[in-house]
Amino acid sequence: MAAQDYLFYIFAALTLLCGFLVVVNPFSRNPVTSAMFLVLTIVSMAGLFVLLHAFFLAAVQILVYAGAVMVLFLFVIMLLDLKEEERRKIRFFGLITGLISVMAVLGVVLKTYLVDSKLNANLQLPTIEGGTAALGRILFKNYLLPFEILSLLLLVAMVGVILLSKKDLK
């Protein structure tokens, strides 16, 4: 096995472990702990992106998710002051339903991937590099209109957030 394969297993295990601790943490039910483990999940997923040669996306993942989005999450958690969560028990019925549906979806997906698929039938050796230059060229040549629409979407989101967080909604 090459060094990259070991790195893949390390990052994948880290991603899944931290993702598990976001959802079901046996030690703490505090949302802040979940948020911290979500940061770790996102950072190790950026590592997986680097292994896939998507360097620009790895940087964006850390900047936007681990930076902006998680700060927003923590800000809201601190704002809401959620102490009640610790006392409540997790509902047994919800957990059972969740586990059943997750097992069903996972079974279908894994069967498709591992048993039925011919994923490797027409794969070439991966040669592309997701650097900033290559991605920027394709973004501004082929995807210019979606890019501009995206800026409009961000503007709409900003206006909506300001309107929603006003004290008296009329």
């Binding site: 993702g19 959802v23 079901v24 999940t41 509902r91 919800g94 979806v105 996972l106």
Partner: peptide, 14 residues
């Protein structure tokens, strides 16, 4: 990872 997220959406209450 997707299914972990799904489990969280269904089972958690916060």
């Amino acid at each position: 990872l997707f299914n972990l997220g799904l489990l969280g959406v269904i089972a958690r209450r916060n």
